[in-house]
Amino acid sequence: MENTKRKYVIPGDVITSGPYRPEQNVILDGERIIATAIGISEIYDDTVRVISLTGKYIPKINDLVVAKVLSHSSLSWELDINSSYVGFLPAADVFGRDFSAHADELNSKLKKGDLVVARIANSDRSRDPLLTISDRELGKIESGELVEISPSKVPRLIGKRGTMIQTIEMATGAIITIGQNGWIVVSCENSDGLLKAVKAIQMVEEQAHIANLTDRVKSMLESKGE
């Protein structure tokens, strides 16, 4: 990345001043651009943003999340999406348009404690985020291991153009589903691969701020290989 200047910032730090466009986790105060979170500031051409290193997941439309069923009413489920808000999954989304509150039993499809891969269909903070599972690759998770990391470290786990996650998947043979909310499901045919993949994910979480992390993870995965 050629035109980027990176800096460690804490809330209140003045990143720069001048005609820049403020993006995530920054505010404009007159001419000054101020960080509002702990993280790494980046200046791209004419925009400034801070990649936060801490904090809860903030739902964004079209994000893929791993969610846990908390409870249901007669018309919808409530899902824990590791955020400040609970996710709302309407029954019609699962049963289709001919859903009837009398005839269909919500428990038959999703029970309390079940994990699902869902997509955020709508989120405007005046209401709870609306989820959907009606798409390919979405829906109930039948098997796998749940790993929780900080949502702010998800981009690091994916890596630049998915390099990090590809590295882990290739070396272990595991299939990894990453929710933007920091919940990750790892499934693998053999238990060694599963353990190694989980370990690699935890390593990314712990060392997210270190440069050349992909290489470090690669050497860790290879060293334990034989």
Binding site: I10, G12, I34, T36, I38, L53, T54, K56, S152
Partner: peptide, 11 residues
């Protein structure tokens, strides 16, 4: 508060 990642204008 900063550790919790709550957005703040300043410390």
């Amino acid at each position: 508060l900063a550790d919790a990642g709550i957005p703040m204008r300043d410390m």
